[in-house]
Write a protein that binds this DNA or RNA. Structure first.
Lengths: 346, 346
DNA sequence: CGCCAATGTGCAATCGTTTGCATATTCAGT
DNA sequence: ACTGAATATGCAAACGATTGCACATTGGCG
């Protein structure tokens, strides 16, 4: 590895004081108990010798690694990079580094990777991939690890969580579609073992009930992954089922993209024949045509918020009052994939 | 932090042997010097007490953190997530964790983040964001840090590098365009302070020369960022310059997307009026219409390759022969954005 | 039966910090 | 000037592992 780094001992030798004095002189909170001039001398020496504290030794002694773990399903899902940048933007300036792990939404992987993070002694974890019931993360939190979940809460726990106002998003989208005259509205639901999939389906049902829209159970079809292929498959199922519909509210953008493709294959134009809506407003969505009507969720800000809460959690004593729930607002984006219901369908 | 983890000392106490014996019994390479039955006893105890080695202490003693740094320009650029997954796929099973940092292509940030990584004692670095001249990474390598660069080489150094065969990609693209009858071919070059920007421009010039295609210097216009806005701006410059061209070979996909937009604004259809090509085949590119003719570079595999080389570098003695250069093949993808040159232009 | 080598285990130092406690010095108050 | 704090520094023990070396035990061989 590197040639040889200068240590506290080197500085002690160079200045003729004890290593503990050097340590104190270099620590802003302890510095006050040291004569200013020897502090100056030590700092000068530290500067001259290009001293860099050894974080490993620090970590061993203090049990603080200045490292946090970030657990996500898959970094290649474009909604996560902005979240990570948001997290980084608050943690990195404070000297924290983050270790990012991808669970691929597999329970075993998630458990194992959480172990890995704990073994490495991370000071806290931001978890954006909790499954619906997740004992491992709950146990970790109970053992005293600082944890914040993102996009999802762990039920029956006091783990703080940051979520987007998905209910509101689904609700506004539904209102938008009804305003355009749609009544027979299908829902492409996401995987029900995933946070968002389940939440959005529930939100859809609730909103429909509140708005007194009758939902044909046959018009709700569930994807097993959040991707274009599943959006396509579900849409085919919908079409072959023979049930009539004029709009498809999809649980995320990728499902919507797959949906539109299959509609087109079947000679149905979006939006003039059938309206389709997405969710997330994921990056690069603007490449698609027609431009997708969707719900924008805050990605960067969600990262910032989660990281800020984690910080408070890690530093604060139990006295501090950390908000258990943070709900970030969403925004309806009306674009081209939704339009007034066609005069007559079929 | 966690309640209390069991340490070697706990196991020693439980089994009645010395802590050093425990250490050896648990280390596969040292195990042979211990009686099999005491090994068994110790392993049983370790199992029972749920022993997990403390990586921090290990790191302090051995100066190996089992951590690597990955330096990229920006994780929100979709070509990087697959690279990261590739890296992870080889490093994670071996017990390595990676710390990912984003430089935003800013020299100061890069230098600072490299410091951060060195401070944390990473065992090695995969650097996918080196600038054209980069003393900091060269110095780090000289100090004994294991370094592999990705997508770019540090000149005059023996730092191993993994690159895509960009020359070949540009060359094949040019050949493709000429085969379609294009002669007046413009180039939207990338930022010249960035690896890829400069390389691809050079490749373009070389290929043109080799194929005896005369390139009008006025038809080469340089972007200052690799994004759609710059692609748009450059295309406007090209159009207002009044120089004639029938195809635009862009240094990356995003420039090409911006280019096509501006052509469309000006009533020019791609590809029937003007052909446009990209580079990278970035994720989600398939959303765009017309589907872009581009050059696919290997992303996941590049990550795998770089990580494998880094591994050899970290573990091997100087005796090992590590390949200095690895060039990954690229692939021309003919899609819809390029076509035969129009009968007459303007 | 004795000696030496081989083998298995223990001892203790070490990695670079932090930090409670002891000690040495200074200084003010009376 | 003497006492008593207050203040500044040093000492040494941690943190949890690895590892060179010393030592003890065993067994083989002459």
């Amino acid at each position: 590895m590197q040639k040889k780094r200068t240590t506290l001992k080197d500085i002690a030798r160079a200045t003729g004081v004890h290593v503990s004095t050097v340590s104190r002189a270099l620590d802003p909170t302890e510095r006050k108990s040291i004569t200013p001039e020897v502090v100056a001398k030590i700092q000068a020496a530290a500067e001259r010798l290009d001293y860099r504290p050894n974080r490993i030794a620090f970590g061993l002694r203090t049990n603080r690694t200045m490292t946090v773990g970030v657990v996500i399903p898959d970094i290649t899902n474009p909604i996560f990079p902005p979240i990570l940048r948001g997290i980084e933007s608050v943690l990195e300036p404070l000297g924290y580094a983050s270790i990012i792990v991808n669970t691929d939404s597999e329970r075993e992987r998630e458990i194992r990777l959480l172990e890995v993070l704990r073994d490495r002694g991370v000071d806290g974890v931001i978890h954006a991939a909790v499954l619906r019931s997740d004992p491992s993360i709950a146990k970790a939190a109970q053992d005293g690890l600082s944890v914040v979940t993102l996009n999802r809460r762990v039920e029956n726990s006091n783990i703080p969580y940051v979520i987007n106002d998905e209910d509101m998003g689904i609700c506004e989208m539904l209102r938008h579609l009804t305003k355009l005259g749609h009544r027979r509205i299908a829902h492409l639901a996401g995987p029900q073992d995933l946070s968002t999939g389940q939440l959005r389906l529930a939100a859809f049902r609730n909103a429909a009930e509140r708005m007194s829209i009758e939902i044909d159970p046959q018009l709700i079809v569930t994807a097993i992954r959040f991707d274009e292929d599943e959006g396509a498959r579900c849409t085919r199922d919908l079409l072959t089922s023979g049930h009539d519909f004029t709009a498809v509210l999809c649980a995320n953008d990728r499902l919507a993209l797959g949906c539109i493709d299959v509609l087109r294959e079947n000679g149905l134009d979006c939006p003039s024949d059938i309206s389709v809506s997405g969710f997330n407003d994921m990056p690069f969505l603007q490449l698609a045509r027609p431009r997708l009507t969707t719900v924008r969720i805050q990605q960067y800000d969600a990262g910032i918020t989660a990281a800020s809460i984690l910080l408070r959690l890690m530093n604060a004593g139990a006295d501090d009052d950390i908000p258990l729930e943070t709900v970030l607002p969403v925004e309806l984006l009306e674009r081209e994939s939704t339009g007034p219901v066609a005069a007559q369908r079929r």
